[in-house]
């Protein structure tokens, strides 16, 4: 699966979501999580994002185990937040990984969290900011403006807001009705299979223009088109 994402769809990173370690979604152990991450590491040559969940007690143990077992792999541990950062940031520093610093659509909290992390002796180069987003039609405009403000403030010289930005259009889009409802029920929404790709592409490209550096996607067609748009934007080719 991970190999397919890289070889066929051109993924430059793989996000491994350890959702199954959530007590209500499989209750898998940290050891099982380590196994999964290791198997993906073995299967692909690209960097990994290790994505957790919001059950802090469990995810802290899971991230700790993964960080330790994959010492030196420079994983991107996704995520820490204001109410839960010490454990994960600590193991990231100890075992040579990066972290995603998540702040709820708020420039000030984002900055504050970066300050907390760098105060723990985390290097700025180890921090990727997640401004948190909803899908197209579900509050994306708030994130869009927060990202533009973060980027402008960063470019204006504020080091605590100068980091790269990560967003997860894939994960958000699969939750929404536009990704599931049939054309029969919503004729104005058009064909579902086209719409799903378009919804994720619109979410992702909009956020790219707002300043996203890393985008976690899920729809293969949206990934392909987004990648092509990025390369056209970068090299100016048609």
């Amino acid at each position: 699966m991970a190999g397919l994402c890289v070889e066929k769809y051109g993924a430059e990173l793989i996000s491994v979501r350890l959702d199954g370690t959530h007590p209500e979604r499989g209750n898998r152990t940290p050891e099982q999580a380590v196994e999964v991450v290791k198997s993906v590491l073995k299967a692909v040559d690209v960097p990994l994002i290790v994505t957790g969940h919001n059950y802090f007690d469990r995810i802290n143990d899971v991230m700790k185990a993964v960080a330790q077992a994959c010492a030196g792999e420079n994983l991107l541990l996704n995520w820490v937040e204001q109410n839960n950062y010490r454990t994960i940031a600590g193991v990231a520093i100890a075992y040579g990984h990066c972290v995603v610093a998540q702040a709820p659509i708020d420039v000030n909290i984002g900055k504050q969290l970066n300050i907390l992390l760098t105060n723990m002796d985390m290097k700025q180069e180890q921090i990727v900011m997640d401004p948190m987003t909803g899908a197209l039609g579900y509050g994306i405009e708030y994130t869009y403006s927060v990202m533009e403000r973060i980027r402008q403030t960063g470019l204006g010289g504020d080091k605590m807001l100068a980091g790269p930005l990560i967003v997860a259009p894939g994960q958000e889009c699969v939750k929404v009705k536009e990704f599931k409802a049939s054309e029969k029920d919503f004729p104005a929404w058009g064909d579902l299979s086209k719409r799903a790709a378009l919804w994720e592409l619109s979410t992702a490209l909009g956020l790219l223009y707002a300043g996203a550096d890393l985008l976690i996607m899920s729809h293969p067609d949206a990934v392909r088109e987004l990648k092509s748009a990025i390369s056209k934007l970068m090299d100016g080719q048609k």
Partner: peptide, 15 residues
């Protein structure tokens, strides 16, 4: 194409 138009109109509304 309604799939395209609905996505674009939604994006436009958001922006």
């Amino acid at each position: 194409d309604p799939a395209l138009v609905s996505a674009l109109m939604t994006l436009r509304m958001n922006i």
